[in-house]
Structure formats: structure tokens, C-alpha cells
Write a protein that binds this DNA or RNA. Structure first.
Length: 914
RNA sequence: GGGCGCAUAGCUCAAGGGCAGAGCACUGUGCUGAUAACGCAGGGGUUCGUGGUUCGAAUCCACGUGCGCCCA
């Protein structure tokens, strides 16, 4: 018999949506499309009447290329904004950059080959720093666009824009006027050789040998017990030159201290260190008494060689690992000492000038560089019996990164924002409570930080930033900052940029005829030399951006940053906002973890485990990177590795193929003509399952559980669609009449499902969904992003439960088929004849499904009464239809087409007739 | 050293006192009309470790280990 080729009579899928994604090549084309469409503005126009959803972008630093962390952050923001936009919210996204600050200053310094900061021409330096920041802003902007992030890229906010800088000045002014800003001494790293302040990052640590000394402080008043005459607290230090600045002795509240009697007098030291000390000093001792550190708090000693009372204070950082357990405290020469000093209201003494020389206050060693004075101090005090032991000591010590000389801590005047002024700290805490933190741990994290945080030091001794808008009267030396001066400077800066402070003279910066508000002098003034901490720049972004941009509003709905910003931007924003507006600038704050490698270690050059965004984009496409960003739970650390990427590529292919299959079967579909077509029960199941999916995904997305949303979509495509519904539909789509109800009903269902999936995936797989969308017939908006979110309908639970039971039954059937397949008796399930034995209830259930053989994709299904439920699979005896491949008793009944079943015979006849 | 987290199959994640589960990967296999595609089945676990509470612990508690963020 002649084998006819019926393939050409079968309605196979057709689509130009390629199976191979080729994202690295195709994505740039879609970027072009979005650009020419002006998609960002179109979306805003579409949603102009919708409720606003304002996500305020935290500004990345305009230095270097983006890394996976910055990419992750922007992708998450973009995904959320796209979801909200599709849901109809008016959701403008104004990206920003942090442009001032030290890293750029460093880079420019190196580029210019400069050695001495004091010799720099400030204005030409700032011009270069400006250009540097703008260059990297432009680079990062292109990199963010390449990720498929939508936003107002042509009008980003930059902390170096004059209009932004104006807000910085005005905000500082407001804080100053309401009393938040104060000036106070604080120790900072200081290089006496370069005569400059150093930032933490400009200090290098390496080993150095210093004189370590044991110094006795006579006790004047003791709070714990009665003590004998001639009692001393013994301290230990490796910086003898700081002894003149000693203002206190710190002990640990929980440590045990002892009073011992020795040939050299009675000493108080930590109990654990007694033996070591006495051995080192070469004397025997007798223990007289003991007490906790807490008990001796507020005792008084005398400074050993200066007329000064020295209290005993408590500090948690005191340890009994070495020394004496009693810590020499010089508030002007150490950060910890300084913090302790703030708690106990100790004076800040720092008798050292900018050249590292002792001032007049230290008459014995005045004019000597402190390190040169060290041996003299040791010699002199030893001879007086004040130092009772000294020896060289090797330890890690900070050095200037430029001249490599050991640095000192030196107290200088700095400006602070007082956290406890006007009940600010409590307001911060209240606003923290009112904010929604995702994950919830964020609340306790920031709350505990705020409860302990010190005042905010606003001044920096640097070049690249906004100058502190403060003058000093040359007559009374008092700082001057009021409405008049701020108003003038704000205008000047707003019109000319912050360089104006360095360009103009004091007279030009001050209002005409300005009189010192303190001493009424009309005389000369001088400018503050320090600039504002860059964290202040970004900390007022909510004011500079949300209040000035016509499409935005204050406060914002959402902040979304890495978890490190609990200390950084969240806090600085909250502080400026609460101090100025008495309210938080955000309603919800979401944090994500950090990008780490396969083993959970952070990425670093030294570990050699760095993966860059462009490596992934160039090889796999931005959609793969976007899929990664939302596939893991970003509230924890985010792992990435080749293995993970390979896995994502497979996930992507599955999603793409599912979409492609649906598209391929809709090539001749027109939703207009099928409105009255009635769905089969299985189609209604698919629709209800889709309803359920839309509800679940929407809920997950709204809770920012993107990975769960994506997981739901993936499982739906994989399990509900690929494994069952699509496989089952092939017969209806391929072999039934082109316009038959069963085929059109299938298409009508597929069309709805496809649109739902493509829209819900678009915020993540933006490129792929945009591409796929353009192939959906009769859906001719310019972009998938101009669509609306699928309608959330309550799914028909009863129907879904009925079908869940059907799938249990199907599983049983599949298992039996596999048994036969393994035995070699059958191949395709279409060859299977099922013999089912079922009790009444089960039988009724199974028989309630029409077209059971189609649903199970088998040839025959015979049901008999039996116990419970039993399925046996056998090979069918029926003949296979050459066209639809279904085994059917009608095959062979038609002499004209002896290989066809009745259904196919009719279709083929009709076709040939037509 | 301190604060806040995290640790479940090779990978990404569920289960929050009651039989440790899904998808992918892997292995076997079917189909050849989604074809560099698709279907079916299978193997795979010291739930980071130690101790405790409990009839019962991946789950609650304590200690420890490793990792991350922040601080010192």
C-alpha cells in the first residue's frame, strides 16, 4: 500500500520567534526600539492618572564600572518599578549618582601626579574631579541602560549639579538655624610631615617599635573601699608623648581589679595581669583587696606631672590581655578615648600643633616633634619615679600612605550634627518603627545602630565636595552662619555651582555691608576651609530630588539598597529628614544581600573569584543576569558561579520554548472571531489554573518575593503547560479542522495564557518578553510595557480540586505505562489500552471526564467495577491513523484513505473538496 | 572582640514540633509534528557540628564551626 504523506495536511506550529535566543546580539536591537519609542515616557503617559509609586534611587558612586552588586541593585529596582507600572501605578524612576568624595579625589590626585595636597590649585583640581565624575557617570549610565533598566536617563540627579548643591547648602542652613549643628574638638588622623588630615583609607598599618611604659597615677579619692596611703593606679601605654594629654583612666566594668602591696608602693591593676606585671617589674607583692571595675568608677587620681584631676571611667574596650587593665585615656589622641570622653564629659586636650610639635601647653618638651620627645619623656619621668618600667614594644601602627611616616591622632575643631538635639534620636526611633522593613530584621538592625550612634561629624578636611557654608569673624573669631549668609550662598551655588566658594573672596560671598551678628564688627571675615561629608550630599537626596522633580513626591514609597546602607544612606537620609521635616523620607525600605561566589565568599581580586556583569551580558545576555537577580532570595547573600549561570540558561530556555510553542500555535488566531467559542472543561481548568497563577504571582511580587513569583511561573510553564496541557493540546491544534471549535477553543485558551505569562515575565525577562510580545497576533501595542497587568480573578477552587484529583489518577496511569515501556511492549502512550478497575465512587469520577483517551493520550480506556482503583496498561490492538497517529477503530474503514481514522478522513476530504 | 543575619539533595528553593519535598541537574528511556525541542520514569539527604527540651526536633534552646554585612 502506498504510504501517503499526510504531514502537509496537519496544522503544525509556525512562528518567527526563534528558538535560539541570541540575546547578546538581539538585546541591543531592542534597546534601539525602546529608545526610538521613548518607552520610559510612554509608560508614564499611560499611567498619568494612576496612583503614584515613587522608588527613590540611592546614588551609586561615580567611580569605575558597575559590578554585580550595582547591577543587582538596579535590576531589582527596575523589576519592581516595571511591575508597578504594568499594574497601572505612575512610577517615575529618576536615577542618581554620588559625585563628590574621596575615592575620586584620590584618583585625580594620582592622575595629576601630585605630592602635596597643600600645594594644589583647588579650582583646577576640582575641575578635573568634576570631569572625572562626569566621565564615570556616563559610563555607568550606558551600563545600566544595557541591563534594560528604564528610567529618566537623560535627566539623572547628580550630587554635583548646582541645583542639587543648592539644596545641600539650604539643608545645612536649616539644621544650623535650628541648633543641630555644633563645633567641637575631635581627634583625627593627622600626618605631621604632610601637615594634613588623613582619612581612614589614607592610613596604612604596619609594625613599628615604640617605647612601652608603666606609669603610676596617685589615687586621690577611692570609691570602692578604704585604701592605704601611697596607692597608685598603674597604667600602660605605647605612646608616652600622649601622657601630657591624659584626662582619665579607663577600666572595664566587669573585670576584677586588685590592690597589691609592693616595695614600690601600693598598686591597682587587673587581677589577671598581676603576676605578669610583678614578674616584669621584678618585685614581689601581697594582695590586699579586690573589686570590680564598676565599683571603682568615678574614683579620682592625680595626673602624675600636671596639676589635673583624672577620674576613673568605664569602657567596654578595656581588656586584660596585656598591659595593666587600666587604660591611659587621652581624649585628644584616640577615637575610643574620645568617645569615652563624650560619655563622661571629659575635656579634649591636644597640645600638639600641625607640625606634630608640642605647643606651649607642654612647657618641658615644647617645640619637639612628639616622636622625638618620646625618649626624653621616658628618661625624665623614669628618673622621677613616675614611669616605673619601660621596654621596646612592637605593634601595628598607622602610617601616612603618601610619606610613610607614622601618623598621630590630633584633636581639631570639627562640625557635628547633634543626634540628641531636640529629641532627634527618639524621633528617629519612632519613624523607624513606622517604616516597613523588608526583611523585618532591618528594623532591629538600624534601630540598634541609631540607639548607639555618636553625633555625625559633618566636616572633612578635603577638596572635592561642597564647602561648609560658614564664615568666621576675624574680630571675635566666632563662626557665622545665618539666614542672610545661607540665602546668598545658596543662590550663588545654585547659579554657579559649589566652586563659587573657592572662586570668590569672602566679601563677594557675604551680603553687602555684612555685620558680625556676635560682635557687630564690620571688619574682615574668613571662609571655612572644610567641606561637608559626602554622606551629607546623598543624605539630603530626598529633599534635592523628591521635592524638586515635578513627577516625584516626598516622602517616597520605597528605598531599595544593599544591607550595608543601614549604617549609610538609610540612616543619613533618615537623620536629615527627621531633623528638617520631622518625618522619615520613606515608607518601605528593602535591603538585599551581597553578591558572593559559589562557596559564599565575597568576590575579591585576591581570591580571583570576580565575575563582572559584562562577562555575563556579552556571553549570555542581560536577561540571564536579570533572571539571576530575581531567581535567588535576595534578602540573603546572592551566590553566582558558572554552574548557577548554566542552570539559569536552562531555566531560560524552558521559558522561552514554552512561549515559542504557544506563539507557534497562534499564527492563524484572531481573538475577535472566537468570542463565542465555548471552552472544553480542560480549557477551563487551564484558565482557572492561570487565574490562580496570576493571583499567586501578584501576591509574591507585591511582597517583593520575586524568586517565588518566578518559581511559580516556571513551574506553571513546566508542569502544567509543557508536561500536560500543551502536550495534550497538540492533537487538537494540529489535526482537527482549522476552524473547528476544539481547535479554536484551544487557541483562545492559549492566547489568554500566553498574554498573562508574557506580561508577568516582562519585568524580569524584559528583552525576551518584548520580543515575544511583538509576535503575538492582534496584540499591537507598541510595547509589552504598555500592556496592563492580567486581571486577578478568584480561581474556581472546586474545579481545580477536581483536576488535582485527575492528575493523581493520571500519575497512576503514567506509572503503569512506564512499566510496559520498560518491558519493551510499547513505545508511545498512544499505543496504550488501559484497563481500569475502580470502585463505584472512583468509576463515577473517572467517567465524568469526557474525551478521557485524549486527556490521557492513550488509545483505549476500559473501565470495570473493582476494588478501589487499579490500572493496567496493555498494547492496543487498534490501528494507528497515519495522520493523527491516534489508534482508532475507524482506521481502515475508508477505501479512499485506508490509513485514516474517521476524523481525519473527513478533514482531508473537506480540504481536498475545497 | 561586638551587633544583625545566613547554613536543608550537585544547584536554586519549600517545609516553622508529627513520614524531609519541588524544579533543575544527573541516570535510564520514549517520541521524531515544540527537534540544539518535548514526554515518562528512577537514583540521590548525618537538614553545618555537639549537647539539651520533648513521646517526637530540619523546626524550640544552648554552645561551637563556617560565611556575609556593619562596627571596634
Amino acid at each position: 500500500m502506498e504510504e501517503k504523506n499526510y504531514s502537509e495536511t496537519v496544522l503544525l506550529p509556525k512562528t518567527d520567534f526563534p528558538m535560539k535566543a541570541d540575546l547578546a546580539k538581539r538585546e541591543p536591537l531592542l534597546l534601539e526600539k525602546w529608545k526610538s519609542l521613548n518607552i520610559y515616557q510612554k509608560i508614564l503617559e499611560k499611567n498619568s492618572g494612576g496612583n503614584p509609586f515613587i522608588l527613590h534611587d540611592g546614588p551609586p558612586y561615580a567611580n569605575g564600572h558597575i559590578h554585580l552588586g550595582t547591577a543587582l541593585n538596579k535590576i531589582l529596582k527596575d523589576t519592581l518599578v516595571k511591575i508597578k507600572s504594568l499594574q497601572g501605578y505612575f512610577s517615575p524612576f529618576v536615577p542618581g549618582w554620588d559625585c563628590h568624595g574621596m575615592p575620586i579625589e584620590h584618583q585625580v590626585f594620582q592622575q595629576m601626579g601630585l605630592k602635596d595636597k597643600n600645594a594644589v590649585d583647588i579650582l583646577s583640581f576640582r575641575k578635573k574631579a568634576h570631569d572625572y565624575a562626569m566621565k564615570f557617570m556616563a559610563i555607568q549610565r550606558e551600563e545600566f541602560k544595557r541591563l534594560g533598566v528604564f528610567g529618566d536617563w537623560e535627566n539623572p540627579y547628580l550630587t554635583l549639579n548646582p541645583i542639587y548643591e543648592k539644596t545641600i547648602i539650604e539643608s545645612f542652613g536649616k539644621l544650623f538655624f535650628s541648633g543641630y549643628v555644633i563645633q567641637r574638638y575631635k581627634p583625627i588622623y593627622w600626618c605631621w610631615h604632610c601637615q594634613t588630615a588623613l582619612a581612614e583609607a589614607e592610613v596604612e598599618y604596619w609594625d613599628e617599635t615604640s617605647p612601652s611604659v608603666y606609669v603610676k597615677f596617685p589615687v586621690k579619692k577611692f570609691s570602692a573601699t578604704n585604701i592605704p596611703e601611697n596607692t597608685f593606679v598603674l597604667i600602660w601605654t605605647t605612646t608616652p608623648w600622649t601622657l601630657p594629654a591624659n584626662v582619665a583612666i579607663a577600666v572595664h566594668p566587669e573585670l576584677e581589679y586588685v590592690l597589691i602591696k609592693t616595695p614600690l608602693g601600693n598598686f591597682i591593676v587587673a587581677e589577671k595581669l598581676v603576676d605578669t606585671i610583678c614578674k616584669k617589674l621584678g618585685f614581689t607583692y601581697e594582695k590586699i583587696d579586690s573589686f570590680s571595675g564598676k565599683q571603682i568608677e568615678n574614683s579620682l587620681c592625680m595626673h602624675p606631672f600636671i596639676e589635673r584631676e583624672v577620674p576613673i571611667v568605664l569602657a567596654g574596650y578595656v581588656s586584660d590581655a596585656e598591659g595593666t587593665g587600666c587604660v591611659h585615656t587621652a581624649t585628644g589622641h584616640g577615637e575610643e578615648d574620645y568617645q569615652t570622653g563624650l560619655k563622661y564629659n571629659l575635656p579634649v586636650i591636644s597640645p600638639v600643633d600641625e607640625k606634630g610639635k608640642f605647643t606651649d601647653e607642654v612647657s618641658q618638651w615644647k617645640g619637639l616633634i612628639v616622636f622625638d620627645a618620646d625618649p626624653l619623656i621616658v628618661e625624665d619621668l623614669s628618673s622621677k619615679g613616675i614611669i616605673i618600667h619601660s621596654e621596646p614594644y612592637q605593634h601595628s601602627y598607622p602610617h601616612c600612605w603618601r610619606c610613610k611616616k607614622p601618623v598621630i591622632f590630633r584633636a581639631t575643631q570639627q562640625w557635628f550634627l547633634k543626634i540628641d538635639h531636640d529629641n532627634l534620636r527618639n524621633l528617629l526611633q519612632n519613624e523607624i518603627q513606622k517604616t516597613r522593613w523588608i526583611p523585618e530584621e532591618g528594623l532591629s538592625r538600624i534601630s540598634s545602630m541609631v540607639s548607639l550612634r555618636p553625633d555625625w561629624c559633618l566636616s572633612r578636611q578635603r577638596l572635592w565636595g561642597v564647602a561648609l557654608p560658614i564664615f568666621y569673624c576675624n574680630n571675635c573669631n566666632k563662626p557665622v552662619c545665618n539666614e542672610q549668609t545661607i540665602s546668598k550662598i545658596a543662590d550663588l551655588v545654585g547659579n554657579n555651582g559649589s566652586d563659587i566658594w573657592f572662586e570668590k573672596t569672602v566679601e563677594e560671598l557675604l551680603p553687602d555691608g555684612f555685620i558680625c551678628p556676635h560682635c557687630k564688627s564690620k571688619g574682615a571675615f574668613r571662609k571655612e576651609k572644610d567641606i561637608l561629608d559626602v554622606w551629607f550630599d546623598s543624605g539630603v537626596s530626598h529633599l534635592a530630588v523628591l521635592k524638586n522633580h515635578p513627577q516625584l513626591q516626598w516622602p517616597s514609597d520605597f528605598y531599595l539598597e544593599g544591607s550595608d546602607q543601614h549604617r549609610g544612606w538609610f540612616q543619613t537620609s533618615l537623620i536629615t529628614s527627621c531633623a528638617i521635616e520631622k518625618k522619615a523620607p520613606f515608607k518601605t525600605v528593602l535591603t538585599h544581600g551581597f553578591v558572593v561566589d559559589a562557596e559564599g565568599r565575597k568576590m575579591s581580586k585576591s581570591l580571583g573569584n570576580v565575575i563582572t556583569p559584562d562577562q555575563i551580558i556579552n556571553r549570555y545576555g542581560a536577561d540571564i543576569l536579570r533572571l539571576w537577580a530575581v531567581s535567588e532570595n535576595f534578602q540573603q547573600d546572592m551566590r553566582i558561579s558558572q554552574k548557577i549561570i548554566d542552570h539559569l540558561v536552562i531555566v531560560y530556555r524552558t521559558l522561552r520554548n514554552t512561549i515559542r510553542f504557544m506563539l507557534g500555535n497562534l499564527y492563524d488566531f484572531d481573538p475577535e472571531t472566537t468570542q463565542d467559542i465555548e471552552l472544553l472543561e480542560v480549557d477551563r481548568w487551564a484558565m482557572e489554573r492561570t487565574n490562580q497563577l496570576v493571583c499567586d504571582v501578584s501576591t509574591f511580587y507585591n511582597d517583593c518575593l520575586f524568586h517565588k513569583g518566578i518559581g511559580e511561573i516556571f513551574n506553571f510553564c513546566n508542569i502544567d503547560m509543557s508536561s500536560f496541557y500543551l502536550d495534550y493540546l497538540k492533537d487538537r491544534l494540529y489535526t482537527h479542522g482549522k476552524n473547528s471549535t476544539v481547535r479554536r477553543a484551544a487557541q483562545k485558551t492559549l492566547y489568554q495564557i500566553l498574554i498573562s505569562i508574557v506580561i508577568m515575565l516582562a519585568p524580569v525577562l524584559s528583552f525576551t518578553c518584548e520580543e515575544a510580545y511583538s509576535f503575538i497576533p492582534k496584540r499591537k501595542r507598541e510595547s509589552v510595557f504598555l500592556e496592563s497587568w492580567p486581571e486577578m480573578k478568584e480561581p474556581d477552587k472546586k474545579l481545580l480540586e477536581r483536576w488535582a484529583r485527575f492528575f493523581e489518577f493520571r500519575k497512576l496511569v503514567l506509572k503503569q505505562i512506564e512499566v510496559q515501556r520498560a518491558a519493551g511492549s510499547i513505545g508511545s502512550s498512544l499505543e496504550v489500552a488501559l484497563e481500569i478497575k475502580a470502585n463505584r465512587e472512583n468509576r463515577q469520577f473517572i467517567e465524568s471526564f469526557s474525551n478521557l483517551t485524549n486527556l490521557l493520550m492513550v488509545a483505549e480506556c476500559r473501565i470495570e467495577d473493582g476494588e478501589n482503583l487499579e490500572v493496567i496498561a496493555k498494547k492496543t490492538t487498534l490501528s494507528k491513523c497515519a495522520r493523527c497517529w491516534i489508534h482508532h477503530h475507524s482506521v481502515g474503514h475508508f477505501s479512499k484513505h485506508p490509513q485514516l481514522c474517521e476524523k481525519c478522513f473527513n478533514i482531508v476530504e473537506e480540504k481536498y473538496a475545497a
